[in-house]
Amino acid sequence: MALAKRIIPCLDVDKGRVVKGVNFVGIRDAGDPVEIAKRYNDQGADEITFLDITASHEERETTVHMVEAIAEQVFIPLTVGGGIRELADIRKMLNAGADKVSINSAAVYNPEFVKAASDRFGAQCIVVAIDAKQVGDNHWEIFTHGGRKPTGINAVEWAVKMAEFGAGEILLTSMDRDGVKTGFDLGVTKAISDAVNIPVIASGGVGNLQHLVDGVKVAGADAVLAASIFHFGEYTVQEAKKFMADAGIEMRL
């Protein structure tokens, strides 16, 4: 027996509501974050990640209430990402009941922020999200603004630096693969997983269950994150875990 690999469903939220087509059969209101989180929890999700896409700072308060409501009722780890720019944002989310926050652009603009966050709250709750795009042979670069803005930063070197700065985990999204359903970018996932000593979550591109297996077995990811394959009931989390376990991966079943 050993530490299990994790499956993490990811949900987009706007003003405290789940958006972008989560469409379970038999759910009363497809936008209710508590109901959706409970559903994934019942299916055996190992964690749940929320990506807050709320545009305005003021309206983000509703996301805080959402996290509070979920944390009171869903007893697996919760991560909140999106719009985390200051220590106060982190404190607010952790106080609301999030276990981890995911820092993306703010880390690129100000790497010291990751250091300060990790010092203050502990590495265990600081996830650094990296959006990478392939720009050459075995060469991946960090992009911001949803993959539109290149930064010139080498993704693997960046991951190493973020680990040194106190990140407890890396959430790696391949921008080339996001939404394409052709599987994770195994190259960059393996390069980063080999380069750092902290857990790496693979994200972007999952279209079937074999992709999840490849992320772990080929690329060495510690966890796999997926959205659409779960949201539309194509596969349940339980089916995905069973498939991975049958492929010889240690899972919590």
Partner: peptide, 16 residues
């Protein structure tokens, strides 16, 4: 390490 495999730190996730 365990059984020749490198283990990441923090120990994060579901263990027995």
């Amino acid at each position: 390490t365990e059984n020749g495999e490198r283990l990441k730190v923090p120990h994060m996730g579901w263990n027995t």
